[in-house]
Write a protein that binds this DNA or RNA. Structure first.
Ligand SMILES: [Mn+2]
Ligand SMILES: [Mn+2]
Ligand SMILES: [Zn+2]
Ligand SMILES: [Zn+2]
Lengths: 138, 138
DNA sequence: TCCAAATCTGTAATCATTACAAAATTATAA
DNA sequence: TTATAATTTTGTAATGATTACAGATTTGGA
C-alpha cells in the first residue's frame, strides 16, 4: 500500500506535474483504492476530508494525470468513465453485480510495438460476463 | 458485400427480431459500411432515404441488436458510443487522424470460456497509437 | 512581503443518451 | 376485407456526465 505523501509527491514531480495538495490527495486515493472509481465517486470520497474541493478540479486533474500516463481511463462502463491508478492489466465487468475486476493475465498482443504497421502506445482489454461470485450465488 | 434485403431479413428472424423495414435498413447499413458509426451518424445517413425516421428508433434498435448479438458496441471513444456490424476482431484508434481500424489478429485470451473463474461472454480489445498512414505523413 | 502565474472553485452550458406518451404500423382473427 | 390488439416508431422533454469559463485562491519566487 502506497500511502506516504512524500512518495506520491515524487510520482507527480517525475512527470512534471506540480504537486499541489489536491493532486497529492487525488493520486493517493487512486493508488490506494482499487475500486475503479468514477469522477463523482472520487469527488464524494475526498470531499469528506477536503470540503472545499470541486468536481471540476477532480476531472481536470484526472485528465492531466491520464495525459501524463499516471492513471488509466477505463471505457468499460457505457454510462460513465472510470479511472484506474494501476496500469498494465485487463479488466472484467460483471453483468450481474456490475463489479469491475482486474485480470492480471498474460496476453500475446500487448507486448507488440506495432500491429499491421500501426504504432502501439497503449491498449485496453475488456471482458464481459458473469463473475465467479455471481455464478455461485445463482 | 451483403446487400440483399431478404438475406438481412433472415438475419433478424434468426435472432427473433421482427424484421420491420427500419430494422432491415439499419442492419443493412451496419453490414455494408465499415465505418464504426455513432448513432447520430447512422441517423443522418438513413434520414436521406427514410426522412421520417427518429434518432430514438435508431438508438432503441441498436440496443436491441446488441442485446441479440447482431452488432458490437464499441467503447473506444469517450465522447460517444460507436457500433460495429462485424464482431470478432480487435480495434485500433489513431490519435492523429482519429480513424478506427480493424485488427483481425489472433489473441490467446479471446478463446477462453473462463478467466480466473469468471464466465466470459464477450470481449473488447482496443489499441491506441499512430496508424501506418499517419506515421508516413509525419 | 509582494506579485505574477498557476491552480482551484462555482456555476452555467453542452450534448449524447434515455424516458415517455401519442401516432403509426403490423399481425391476427372475425 | 375490416376490426382490433400488440408492437413499433416518432417527437419531445428529461437526464446526467462532462466541459467551458470567469472570478477567487493558492503557489513559488523575488
Ligand atoms: Mn484495474
Ligand atoms: Mn470493427
Ligand atoms: Zn458479479
Ligand atoms: Zn492515423
Amino acid at each position: 500500500m502506497i500511502t506516504d505523501l512524500e512518495k506520491i509527491k515524487k510520482y507527480l514531480q517525475a512527470v512534471k506535474i506540480k504537486p499541489t495538495y489536491l493532486r497529492i490527495r487525488l493520486l493517493k486515493y487512486l493508488l490506494e483504492k482499487k475500486n475503479h472509481p468514477t469522477g463523482k465517486m472520487i469527488y464524494q470520497a475526498l470531499k469528506k476530508e477536503l470540503p472545499t474541493i470541486s468536481l471540476t478540479s477532480i476531472y481536470n486533474n484526472l485528465e492531466l494525470f491520464a495525459k501524463k500516463g499516471l492513471v488509466k481511463i477505463l471505457l468499460l462502463d457505457p454510462k460513465e468513465i472510470r479511472f484506474d491508478g494501476e496500469k498494465g492489466h485487463h479488466h472484467f465487468f460483471c453483468e450481474k453485480c456490475q463489479k469491475i475486476i482486474d485480470l492480471p493475465i498474460d496476453c500475446n498482443l500487448i507486448k507488440k510495438k506495432k500491429i499491421f504497421g500501426h504504432l502501439i502506445k497503449d491498449w485496453d482489454g475488456y471482458f464481459f460476463g458473469i463473475c465467479k461470485d455471481c455464478q455461485r450465488d445463482g
